[in-house]
């Protein structure tokens, strides 16, 4: 593993702005899904992308802060179990930070595969385990019921996380400059 800094001032700012984006996307962007009357939540793709760029702590905090605030704005109070789920998605997909060097403009197909695997894993832990378990503890609900909700969230979130974060990473890596490459003619 590389010796990457864990939480610099830049990471902190990236996290703060990432969480702000999380809120904006959750509240304003409604993309209709193929299933009638449902919308795709594109937020997790962006969260995973920030995880790749800034690391697991940033990813986790973006989910934690972003989800807490957006829930509070929309519902008056956060649903804690799902907030924890959002944090987990960010932490797990943020592990990519240690395997990749996107800031230098590098993002390969192999990196994309790792990102997808970690995104699916993160979403699985979040929506099939953490969120339902949290809801079960908090409201003493039957496992089947909370698990069914989690399964639905897992299905759509895992797909959008993979597709969007990979697309964003490729696009972002193309905007980064490589060391010693700039010259004026």
């Amino acid at each position: 593993m590389s010796k990457k800094p864990l939480f610099t001032t830049k990471t902190l700012v990236g996290t703060g702005l990432g969480a702000a984006l999380f809120i904006v996307l959750t509240m304003f962007v409604k993309v209709p899904s193929p299933i009638p009357n449902t919308t795709i939540n594109i937020t997790y793709g962006v969260e995973a992308f920030f995880g790749v760029v800034f690391g697991p702590i940033a990813g986790g905090l973006i989910g934690l802060i972003g989800h807490t605030i957006s829930d509070s704005l929309m519902w008056g109070t956060p649903s804690w179990a799902w907030v924890a789920g959002s944090a987990v998605v960010g932490i797990v997909s943020g592990l990519c930070y240690y395997f990749m060097d996107i800031e230098s403009g590098k993002f390969s197909v192999k990196d994309a595969v790792i990102l997808c695997v970690l995104s699916v894993l993160g979403n699985a832990i979040a929506w099939l385990l953490v969120a339902p378990a949290g809801d079960m503890i908090q409201y003493a609900q039957p496992w089947d019921y909370v698990f069914a909700q989690g399964l639905m969230a897992f299905g759509s979130n895992a797909i959008t996380t993979c597709v969007l974060s990979v697309l964003l990473c490729f696009a972002y890596s193309k905007t980064r400059v490589k060391k010693g490459s700039l010259d004026i003619e």
Partner: peptide, 8 residues
């Protein structure tokens, strides 16, 4: 001064 990303 030469930035790391610059050639000169």
């Amino acid at each position: 001064f030469q930035y790391d990303s610059q050639k000169r």
